[in-house]
């Protein structure tokens, strides 16, 4: 959104109403002037250049855009960026610590839970929300929790294994990441 995000002052003639928002993204406070209709997914991708969040559909089915909103998974294509004002958003870029991978990231790699990698960020964030609520899920519970996230490559089985791998790891380390 060049004109919507970074260069709002350049073309006053566009007469687009903008609103200033402050959103904590991956622990860092970001402020932006945005059009009210701007989708959160587009703000993250284009405005904040956090392109790990993907969009795979236009009907809220695929979950490739899943981020954590105050810790809960949301489909960022179905939320206006202005709704995130004052809230915390976690994207895939905020998943790893400074040096270490999150156990989910390790699990996806170890269990070959990704191929093209397009669904992966959304999958991992949906799984993170699950594991925070339910640290020891069954396979069926993992499948249910990820049923809002489509994957076209893996056939899901290795994704399920990856999440269970991460759950084990997180329980071993007492949930410390």
């Amino acid at each position: 959104m060049t004109s919507l995000f970074e260069e709002v002052s350049e073309e006053p003639g566009t007469q687009v109403p903008v609103r200033r928002v402050a959103i904590t993204v991956n622990g860092r406070r970001r402020t932006a002037d945005i059009e009210p209709r701007l989708l959160l997914a587009h703000l993250l991708r284009q405005g904040l250049k956090l392109t790990g969040t993907h969009t795979g559909c236009d009907t809220t089915n695929c979950g490739a855009c899943t981020v954590l909103f105050d810790g809960k998974p949301v489909k960022s294509c179905t939320m206006l960026a202005v709704q995130a004002d004052g809230h915390e958003v976690t994207t895939v870029e905020g998943l790893a610590g400074a040096s270490e991978l999150h156990p989910l990231q390790e699990g996806f790699k170890d269990e070959h839970g990704l191929q093209c990698g397009f669904c992966t960020p959304g999958m991992m964030l949906a799984a993170k929300a699950l594991l925070e609520e339910n640290p020891d899920p069954t396979e069926d519970e993992v499948r249910w929790a990820l049923s809002g996230n489509l994957c076209r490559c893996t056939g899901y089985q290795n994704i399920v294994k990856a999440v269970l791998w991460a759950a084990d790891k997180l329980r071993e380390t007492g949930g410390a990441e």
Partner: peptide, 16 residues
């Protein structure tokens, strides 16, 4: 995998 799990893939729409 190392880039995809970090959201560092380089897909076409990521190009700016």
């Amino acid at each position: 995998d190392r880039r995809f799990i970090r959201g560092r893939g380089r897909f076409v729409d990521d190009q700016q």
